[in-house]
Design a protein around this nucleic acid. Structure first.
Length: 754
RNA sequence: GCCUGGGUGGCGGAACUGGUAGACGCAAGGGACUUAAAAUCCCUCGGUCCUCGCGGCUGUGAGGGUUCGAUCCCCUCCCCAGGCACCA
């Protein structure tokens, strides 16, 4: 890996290399854990967690993609386990707020983070039970404007209230069966479109706090126990889920928001009305617009003492326990006497044992390692057991960038504040879009936390973010032999059985699809420079890159073209100083001089401001084409040779960041002794780059009709006059009245006629 | 369903702030060089019509709108990619 990176010519500073799996790194992570534990930012709790049966480990919510494990794709189960969590929710407000203060981040990443955090404003409302026990059911709602239409109550099947309320009632058995059934249903089924809303009546009633009506209480399969309070007031007229539920169990519907365009009738509604409207059947609030009623009704509930405004977030705490080997051991021991005890700072690091058996079967290898597990309690000295869970490896990647600033720093807290605060935040961070929420959210959290511990003095880790695309290639498949590597195909046929190969979809390069390119082979065949040039030229970095063998060939040809150009002129221009004065140059050489400086400007801007290497490279290609187009001067024409020398040297310098190896060699061939990598980037001469003559477009009624040449300093008035006299344009203005003439300096004249 | 990006020649992609659409490359076609091939160098290359011009019309997913002028701004719709999805 390292060798390959070096062969490609990437200029990494290997002195800053960091290995997150070494104790020199993860010991600090364990220290941070102790600090977090002390502050309540790390805690253990029993909860329903995502469990990957393949990896035999727990996964954070963010690490479940469409119900499957982000690593192996296996469907994730729900298990009840004791797990360690990081209290990322302590920073939820700041994480959300700073989404508006990261102008250098792509909007879609920020949107994804905002959605993931999922802030919503609403009310908690207490619904008293209809029996006289004085108990209440508390719900969270964002739609308190519909409270007059709440006709029944829904409770998550897993909620303890379900069994409590139904206990001893004639419905108890049915409720129990229902709860068990929901518990058995897996995640995939629950989220599928066909999943039907179901419930069971608990034999209990509560009262609507504003209308006083009796509302039957149901357990429902579609109510989430973990969100809000796990209980929902159901308003079937204005919520589609509640509507479906009401229809199924024949529950009453009351319209409380009327559609101003077409009045609603509860008896004939076929779906819930979820748009804006005017309140009806809502007592004192009738006639209000529902959006305005949100506030008014919230006030009303608060004055009644039945509810209060609250904010809910979708974001949950970050479950970091993993039953894997890799990852820092959690520095905690369990003592029969003292309970959960943290490992004292002086005993850190808790080392990952080297003598574990990695069976590949999943499950924690540490839990099978007695020497690791059995220890002494740091408090009482008695026998104790170590925590065998390790931390999610995303913890490691949440601060490695800080460590880069002071790699090897071996004093507490593992970060040299001065250096870190000098280098950080990262000016330009580059990563795949797949980390939009995982790594990028965790790193933001960790940064804020370390800031509050006094280690860092900045709020956000990455000032600018570029999400680069992935390298894709078409897949090839043989009917008999499945997916094929590129070298298993010759002339469209499988090399094993000679049957024609099926060309499949273009997909992200992966070993499983065999649509990969071997970098060693590529470097052997074409060299690292060709590989680099192709990748940079094919598309801008934020887009996916479609691999094309012909494109690689094209990149190789261009390098050859540059090489021949240099070889051609290296000798004749060897003794000629590059450049030369602009004044007095014949027009054709002036044009090349201009092209040189325009190219420097364009390439500098494209690299600097936009990371658009593809257009930077095409600009250099244009310069090379211009040199090929130039007439070959005689050996005495020192002016011309000087300009050519300048063009050639400029080409070599400008290409250096893209193709460093070949340009360094060409630089030497040109007789330069100072290495190109130590040579300053050229600056352009604005005077030379300026166009002396510009093409002015003449439009009639917005249609392109003619072009004229104008001197750069020609007055707007004069250009306008010439445009009006222009022969080609007059063919279209002849016999018509000129209504208006619009001139855009340096660009065009538009003559409006009727 | 909701949110975010996108949709430009045969293909990858340009067009910076509303001002010449298609830069540059690939593919294709033609020519030069060569005994020949490869390599190289040069030319043509969105569609269409004709009187083949330094021409006309048309053209950036579709349809409207704003504007002197729209790939760019606004509205409606279609399609593709990604994200979220019973979040009350």
């Amino acid at each position: 890996m390292k060798k390959q990176l070096k062969r490609m010519g990437f200029s990494y500073d290997w002195d800053r290399e960091v290995s997150t799996c070494e104790p020199e790194y993860y010991r600090w992570e364990q220290l941070f854990f102790l600090w977090m534990y002390e502050k309540g930012l790390a805690y253990k709790k029993g909860s329903v967690v995502n469990w990957c049966p393949q990896c035999k480990t727990v996964l954070a919510n963010e690490q479940v993609e469409g119900g499957a494990c982000w690593r192996c794709g296996t469907e994730v189960d729900q298990e009840h386990l004791e797990q360690w969590f990081f209290r990322i929710t302590a920073y939820v407000e700041e994480l959300l707020e700073y989404c508006d203060r990261l102008p250098g981040w792509p909007e879609r990443v920020l949107t994804m983070q905002r959605n993931w955090i999922g802030k919503s404003y609403g009310c908690e409302v207490d619904f008293p039970m209809a029996d006289d026990t004085g108990k209440t059911i508390r719900v969270f709602t964002t739609r308190q404007d519909t409270i007059f239409g709440a006709t029944f109550m829904l409770v998550a099947a897993e909620h303890p209230l379900v069994l409590e309320l139904s206990k001893g009632k004639p419905f108890e058995k049915e409720v129990r069966e229902f709860v068990e059934k929901v518990g058995r249903q897996d995640r995939l089924l629950r989220t599928s479109d066909a999943y039907e809303k179901e419930g069971a009546f608990l034999g209990a009633y509560c009262l609507n706090p504003v209308t006083g009506w009796k509302m039957p209480v149901y357990a429902a399969n579609f109510v989430l126990a973990e969100y809000g309070t796990g209980c929902v007031m159901a308003v079937p007229t204005h919520d589609q889920r509640d509507f479906e539920f009401a229809k199924k169990y024949d529950l009453p519907l009351i319209v409380v928001i009327d559609n101003p365009k077409a009045p609603l009738d509860a008896a004939t509604m076929t779906e819930a009305y979820v748009d804006e409207g005017i309140l009806v059947n809502s007592g004192p609030f009738d006639g209000l617009e529902n959006l305005k009623a949100l506030d008014t009704i919230a006030d009303h509930l608060e004055s009644l003492g039945r509810g209060r405004r609250t904010i809910q977030y979708r974001l949950r705490d970050w479950g970091i326990s993993r039953q894997r080997y890799w990852g820092a051991p959690i520095p905690v021991v369990y003592c029969g006497k003292c309970g959960t005890v943290t490992v004292p700072e002086s005993d850190l690091p808790v080392l990952l044992p080297m003598d574990v058996e990695l069976t590949g079967e999943g499950g924690s290898p540490l839990a099978k390692n007695g020497a690791f597990m059995d220890t002494e309690c740091p408090c009482c000295g008695g026998p104790a057991r170590r925590e065998t869970d390790t931390m999610d490896t995303f913890v490691e990647s949440s601060w490695y960038f800080d460590r880069f600033c002071c790699a090897g720093f071996d004093r507490k807290p593992g970060l040299d504040k001065e250096k870190v605060n000098y280098w950080m935040p990262v000016d330009q961070y580059i990563g795949g879009i797949e980390h939009a929420i995982l790594h990028l959210l965790y790193s933001r959290f960790y940064t804020k936390m370390l800031r509050d511990f006094g280690v860092l003095s900045f709020d956000e880790p990455f000032r600018n973010l570029l999400t680069q695309g992935m390298v894709c290639k078409e897949t090839m498949k043989c009917r008999k032999h499945g997916f094929l590597y590129p070298d298993q195909v010759r002339e469209g046929k499988c090399t094993q059985c000679d049957t024609p190969v099926l060309i499949g979809k273009t997909e992200k390069m992966s070993k499983s699809l065999k649509n990969v390119v071997d970098p060693d082979h590529l470097i052997r065949e074409y060299g690292a420079d060709t590989a680099r040039l192709f990748c940079l030229f094919a598309s801008p970095p934020e887009k996916d890159l479609e691999w094309s063998d012909q494109g690689v060939e094209g990149a190789f040809r261009f390098i050859g073209r540059v090489w021949r150009m240099v070889m051609d002129y290296a000798d004749p221009t060897r003794e000629v100083p590059a450049g030369g004065d602009l004044a007095g140059l014949p027009e054709e050489w002036k044009a090349l001089k201009r092209k040189i400086h325009q190219t420097i400007r364009k390439v500098t801007e494209d690299i600097d401001q936009r990371f658009h290497f593809n257009t930077a490279i095409s600009a250099v290609m244009e310069l090379v084409n211009a040199v090929y187009q130039a007439p070959r001067p005689s050996g005495e024409d020192l002016t011309a040779l000087g300009i050519l020398r300048e063009a050639i040297e400029t080409t070599v310098i400008l290409l250096n960041p893209f193709v460093p190896h070949v340009t360094e060699e060409l630089w030497q061939i040109l007789g330069r002794t100072v290495p190109l990598s130590d040579t300053a980037w050229p600056s352009f001469d604005p005077e030379a780059a300026r166009d002396e003559e510009i093409t002015i477009v003449i439009q009639v009624n917005g249609k392109l009709r003619s072009r004229i040449q104008a001197a750069a300093d020609e007055s707007e008035e004069s250009i306008r006059e010439r445009a009006l006299r222009d022969e080609s344009a007059r063919r279209f203005t002849e016999g018509k009245t000129v209504r208006k003439v619009i001139t855009v300096p340096g660009k065009l004249v538009n003559i409006v006629v009727s």
